[in-house]
Design a protein around this nucleic acid. Structure first.
Length: 563
DNA sequence: CCTTAGACTTGGACCAAAGTTT
DNA sequence: AAACTTTGGTCCAAGTCTAAGG
């Protein structure tokens, strides 16, 4: 295989950058695609006989498939959530009568044992992982060897879902080769299914980017194996996304004027559309597709907001026309916000609420499809999510400009960067649970700061003493000592400042997740340009993976880049 | 027009590896 | 070298949006 790979790679064109290569115009995503297929979950290993399962107090020997399911439950025992599944057809009808404790103990012991592994054992595992990565983790797309994102198929287990999910606890079944559709090019060496097995299908569709797919049994949706963000195909798409957002920047004033105008429309559907768009623009809300009831957790976005999700306050504290939002958004993350709106918006909302029940749709004449169709007419390629990208990126750019001070130290500038990033994360409502060790880690940092402060005052005293000494003796040696002490003070001051900045940053970041906006919403060229302008090494902003993902931007953006 | 399948992007938690301190 | 902390990769979804089909 490696010889084969070499041969194929030797054909590769050695252009300087692949995002400068030509792309097709007929909607095809590639011409050549070759890969080795997915890695399947390891097959089930029955437990040793000594690990017993009890039902209703009585020992029961389970068949391997039933035992596997039992182990899923056993592994859940320590989790705070309770799986409320009514189990299998057989004798086991009541989960409460199942005693998984031996199994649970066994797995705990196993995980303990894993931690105690010798270096040698760890090395072996690492090597095996590396071997799998080399064999299955890459593909050839057109003239390039590309990293695959998720080449391992998800193992079977209990579906959890997020928030209050109606399907929590359902069995997620094992995926076999017979479930997999392979996609590759006709002239490639097709991946081989495991011995004695067959793929569901092998197709050659170059209008899509995935390498393999299967249908998952919980929602019946399709899962894909696709390329890593560092790949050409993902990078180009990403670039395109930001270019669309920049086109929105050019016409956003016009669109804003228009939707404000539409607040006065005599047609209800237009008013609703205009108010929804205002929220999407101002609050960076998601579009809010309809969801099938009972299939997923009850969450909403803009178009699917219900009456119960907003409260209107003609007057609140010092402000007029305040709208209070309180709903569960994507991943059941709560969105809570109180914002003053323009009188017209407020009046419209009152109108939309008339004669409605709490569970009725706020925008009953609107859905994402209608909204997006309208947006498409306003600007080519415009959809609701472009506003999120646009507002996130423009906010970063503005905040960076506002917060960065040229003669700040590098750590201080990075604090400014993180604050700009944070402004975006807050806008997009990217929250996280405070880390479990937050308080402790804050305390540790404070201890360090206190110590450093003591160190500093000692150093300052020493400097003073050295100065006095020098004044008295005026010799070279004492002059040198003064210099040495002066340097020491300076160094400690810097260290102290760095620690204080770190503490501020961490505190402000307690409940904010920066990752998502950094990875998905912020035009990387803004960050690259900022780094160049202030001579900040790009490594301070992007780690290795991120630099790989944003290679196109790092290559492209100069210090004067403007989003 | 409405519904649904399909493709692709966006999302936070968790945990092992890497890094740092004791 | 053990213990502890931080980082970043993986996991496992949950969204958005387009297009095909009825």
């Amino acid at each position: 295989t490696s010889l084969n790979l070499l041969l194929k790679m030797s054909v590769m064109v050695l252009t300087s950058f692949r995002w400068e290569e030509e792309r097709s115009t007929d909607g095809s995503k590639w011409r050549f695609l070759e890969h080795n297929g997915p890695v399947f979950a390891p097959s089930y290993e029955p437990l040793p006989d000594k690990v017993k399962f009890f039902y209703d107090g009585k020992h029961m020997k389970l068949s391997p498939p039933a035992e596997e399911v039992a182990t899923f439950f056993a592994k859940m025992l320590d989790h705070e959530y309770n799986m409320t599944k009514k189990n299998e057809k057989s004798k086991i009808t009541d989960l409460n009568k199942c005693n998984f404790s031996q199994m649970n103990d066994y797995f705990k012991a196993q995980s303990e044992a894993r931690k105690q592994m010798t270096k040698e054992e760890k090395r072996k595992i690492k090597e095996e992982n590396e071997r799998l990565l080399q064999e299955y983790g890459f593909c050839i797309m057109d003239n390039h060897k590309e990293r695959i994102g998720n080449f391992r198929i998800e193992p079977p287990g209990l579906f959890r879902g997020r928030g209050d999910h109606p399907k929590m606890g359902m069995l997620k079944r094992r995926i076999r080769p017979e479930d997999i559709i392979i996609n590759c090019s006709k002239d490639s060496k097709q991946p081989k299914p495991p011995p004695g097995k067959k793929w569901k299908e092998v197709r050659h569709d170059n209008k899509v980017t995935w390498l393999a797919s299967w249908t998952e049994n919980i929602q019946g949706s399709i899962k894909y194996i696709m390329l890593n963000p560092s790949s050409r195909i993902k990078g180009e798409k990403d670039w395109q996304k930001y270019e669309t957002a920049r086109r929105l920047k050019k016409c956003v004033d016009r669109l804003r004027t228009q939707y404000r105008d539409d607040w006065k429309s005599k047609e209800m559907r237009i008013r609703q559309r205009a108010v929804a768009l205002y929220f999407i623009d101002k609050l960076a809300l998601r579009a809010g597709n309809e969801k099938e009831e009972g299939e997923t957790a009850d969450t909403v976005g803009c178009c699917s907001l219900r009456v119960e999700h907003i409260q209107l306050y003609p007057k609140m504290d010092e402000q007029e026309f305040v709208v209070e939002f309180d709903f569960l958004g994507k991943d059941s993350i709560r969105y809570y916000n109180k914002i003053p709106v323009e009188k017209r918006v407020f009046k419209n909302l009152q109108l939309f609420l008339e004669n409605k029940q709490p569970e009725d749709d706020l925008f009953d004449r609107l859905n994402t499809s209608i909204l997006n169709k309208h947006l498409q007419e306003l600007m080519d390629g415009l959809t609701a999510k472009v506003f999120r990208t646009y507002n996130a990126s423009i906010t970063l750019q503005q905040q960076l400009k506002e917060l960065t001070t040229s003669d700040d130290s590098i750590p201080a500038k990075i604090l400014s960067y993180n604050r700009a990033n944070r402004a975006v994360a807050i806008l997009c409502n990217h929250q996280r649970a405070p880390p479990k060790t937050f308080e402790k880690s804050m305390q540790n940092l404070q201890t360090k700061i206190d110590e450093k402060q003591i160190q500093l005052s000692t150093a300052r005293k020493q400097l003073k003493a050295a100065k006095a000494d020098h004044k008295a003796s005026h010799d070279d040696k004492s002059k040198k000592t003064v210099e040495v002490k002066r340097k020491a003070v300076q160094r400690i001051e810097e260290q102290l400042m760095k620690l204080q900045v770190q503490a501020t940053d961490r505190e402000e970041n307690k409940q904010i997740a920066l990752g998502t906006s950094k990875l998905n919403y912020l035009d990387p060229r803004i960050s690259v340009a900022w780094c160049k302008k202030y001579a900040i090494p790009i490594e301070k902003i992007y780690n290795k993976t991120q630099r790989e993902k944003f290679a196109w931007a790092i290559d492209m953006a100069e210090k004067d880049y403007v989003f």
